[in-house]
Each structure stands twice: as structure tokens, then as C-alpha cells.
Amino acid sequence: MKSAVRIEAFLEMMSAERGAADNTLASYRRDLEDAAEAVGDLAAAQTADIRTYLGEIAARGFASSSQARKLSALRQFFKFLYMEGLRADDPTGTLDSPRKERSLPKTMSEAETGRLIDRAATEAGDPALGDAARLAALRLHALVEVLYATGLRVSELVSLPLSVALRDERFFIVRGKGDKERMVPLSAKAREAMRAWLGERGTMPAYEDNPYLFPAASESGHLPRQIFARDLKALAARAGISAAKISPHVLRHAFASHLLHNGADLRAVQQLLGHSDISTTQIYTHVLEERLVRLVNDHHPLADKTS
């Protein structure tokens, strides 16, 4: 069958000229053979045939990401045929890629977040802890308080400079993605937790000249984000919260969601999170929608107060 020969030639080109990995080649093969089975002679397929096929896989329940991947394989295949002079056109040229669904970010309720922070504070203040355990508890409490107070990215959090804790100011400047600086507020509780950690940090001679607030014997010189993520999950479990539903990124989302839920402006949250584009922040639009519905139901004179 001509399609099978053309597919093999395409895969040979991808391997020899593009250096495609075995997994990539296997994925292309599956997608192209699936299309050939549906269309017939794939090498001679027209735009209407490809559009019908894409409609069929959507009806079969394939996620939009899978649909987009299959269309991408077809684009590569027909581009190859065109470049090799085996076709005079590209039937995928006028086809739109399936729109990917924007999944809602995982987050935590305000009650869960409060429980997590309370647990961290309780452990940090436990007088029965040994030196090593006290050190770890104070550090974790400071990390959790600062993360929920600021919504920092985990990479920004673990690499905070020591100077942030030395100034005792309500705001500090953080350097984020693209080397851009932004001003971040710091709550009284977060400043207090940082001061407590700073006092313990000062007893560690090995880190006397380390410039980071959360130093570690790592290649970077600061606490690896994987260690913080592991410690955070363990803390969640001790607080009675499923470890599977929490990560540093989830706490960042909680920061943004709780701000919006309590009346913050989307633009302000964009600036606090360090998003360069408002469209990135718009994943939280559902929070605004819920707030607006509640606002109307609570305050509009014709709203049904019983619903």
C-alpha cells in the first residue's frame, strides 16, 4: 500500500536527518497508521478527509492535546511529501489546531491552608524537639508562611537572599522570570517566622558566609526545591491533609485564589505573581465568577435569598 511505503520513508527521514528518538518515531508511526486506517490512502488524502478524521477522533473521546498531537504528526508527514515532490499541496495547511482545554489549577481551601500553617507553627514552637528537628521545623514554618504570604514561585522562594530577613520591612523586591523585578508584600506572621528561623540560622557556622536565607550544602548553595516539596507533603500529612493534593505550586495557587475570592483585583494578583501577561492570570477567572455571583445573590434587591 502506497501509504505504508510513504510512512516508512517519512520515519526514515525523521530518524536519519532529524535524529528523532525511538519513542518519538513510535508515536509518529501510531498516529499516522491510525489516520491511514481511517482515511485509506493517507498519502493521497484531501483536506476534507483529514477534517473528517479529526472529527472522528474527537467523537471517540480523545483529549484535545491528543488531537493536536495527531494533527502535528500529519502536518509533518505532508510537509515531508511536499518537500520530496511526492505531493503538490499540503492538505493540512488550512486546518486549525484543536483548542486545548485550560485545566483549573489545584488549590486548597482557606481552612486547609490555615491548618497547614498552624501545624507548621506548632511544630516550630515545640520545646521537646532536638536541635536538628527544631532547625528543620523553624525552616519549614518560615518557608510555608512566606510562600502563602507572597505567592512566590518555589524557585524564587528557596533562593531568597538573606537580606530579605534582615530588613524587617513590609515589602521586598524579588527577581523573577526573565530577570524581572517585582515588589512583594510580607505579612507580619511571615516576618516573625523568618526572624525565628534567622535566629536559628545564625547558630550554623557552616553557613556564616552563605548569601541565601535558606542555605544548604547543595550545588546552588540554597535549599533544593525538591527537598522543600518533600517536607511540605510530609507536613500536610501530619496536618491531616492529603499529601497528594499539595505542592509548593498549589500553595502559590491558594495565595492567588484566596486573594481574588476576598476581593482582590485580577491585575493586582497578576503583578504579585509576576505574570508578564494577564492571560496567564486568567486561569483564576472562575474565582472571580463565583465572587460576582455571590455578590449579586447577597446584595441585589431582587435576588432570591433562599437559594
Rank of each mutant, 00 (worst) to 15 (best):
Leu143Glu: 06
Gly40Met: 08
Gly61Tyr: 00
Asp96Ser: 14
Ser109Arg: 04
Ala59Phe: 07
Ala43Asn: 07
Ala124Tyr: 02
Ser72Met: 07
Asp131Thr: 14
Phe62Gly: 12
Leu71Phe: 01
Lys100Phe: 13
Ala136Met: 11
Glu101Lys: 12
Val158Glu: 00
Ser64Asn: 07
Pro127Met: 10
Leu81Val: 08
Ala59Asn: 12
Arg51Ile: 06
Asp126Gln: 09
Lys70Thr: 08
Phe78Val: 08
Ser159Arg: 12
Ala68Pro: 05
Glu145Trp: 02
Asp89Thr: 09
Thr107Tyr: 02
Arg153Trp: 05
Leu129Gly: 10
Val154Trp: 04
Leu42Gly: 06
Arg75Asn: 09
Glu101Ser: 14
Ala43Met: 06
Ala88Met: 04
Met83Thr: 13
Leu135Glu: 11
Glu123Tyr: 10
Gly40His: 04
Ile50Asn: 00
Gly125Thr: 11
Ala132Tyr: 06
Ile57Phe: 05
Ala35Lys: 07
Ser66Gln: 04
Met108Leu: 15
Ala121Leu: 10
Arg102Trp: 10
Ser109Glu: 05
Gln76Arg: 15
Asp89Phe: 08
Gly40Asp: 11
Gln46Arg: 15
Ile57Arg: 02
Lys106Trp: 01
Ala120Asp: 14
Arg60Gln: 13
Asp90Thr: 15
Thr107Gln: 03
Thr94Leu: 15
Tyr53Glu: 12
Ala121Cys: 06
Gln67Trp: 05
Ala137Arg: 01
Leu140Thr: 09
Ile117Lys: 13
Ala35Arg: 12
Ala88Ser: 11
Ala133Tyr: 01
Asp96Ile: 07
Gly151Ala: 03
Glu101Asp: 14
Ala124Met: 07
Thr92Pro: 10
Glu84Phe: 00
Leu54Pro: 02
Pro161Lys: 00
Leu138Asn: 07
Ile117Glu: 15
Gly55Leu: 03
Arg134Leu: 11
Asp89Ser: 08
Ala38Phe: 11
Ala133Trp: 02
Pro161Cys: 02
Ala121Gln: 10
Arg115Cys: 12
Leu116His: 10
Pro161His: 00
Ala59Ser: 12
Thr107Trp: 01
Arg75Tyr: 13
Leu81His: 03
Met83Ile: 13
Ala48Phe: 14
Asp96Glu: 12
Ala120Asn: 14
Pro127His: 11
Ala149His: 04
Phe62Lys: 12
Ser109Phe: 02
Ala149Thr: 04
Arg139Lys: 01
Gly61Ile: 00
Leu116Met: 13
Arg153Leu: 06
Ile50Arg: 00
Gly130Ile: 07
Ala36Tyr: 03
Ala137Trp: 00
Ser159Pro: 09
Thr107Leu: 01
Ala121Asn: 07
Arg139Met: 02
Glu156Thr: 03
Glu84Met: 04
Pro105Asp: 13
Leu138Asp: 10
Ile50Met: 00
Gly55Asp: 08
Gly93Gln: 12
Ser159Ala: 09
Arg60Thr: 02
Ala128Ser: 15
Asp131Lys: 12
Glu156Ala: 01
Ser109Trp: 00
Ala124Pro: 04
Pro91Cys: 07
Gly125Arg: 10
Pro161Met: 01
Glu37Asp: 13
Leu140Arg: 01
Lys70Glu: 10
Leu152Phe: 07
Leu138Ala: 05
Ala132Glu: 13
Ser103Glu: 15
Arg60Met: 08
Tyr148Arg: 11
Ala48Tyr: 11
Ala142Gly: 10
Arg119Asn: 12
Asp118Pro: 13
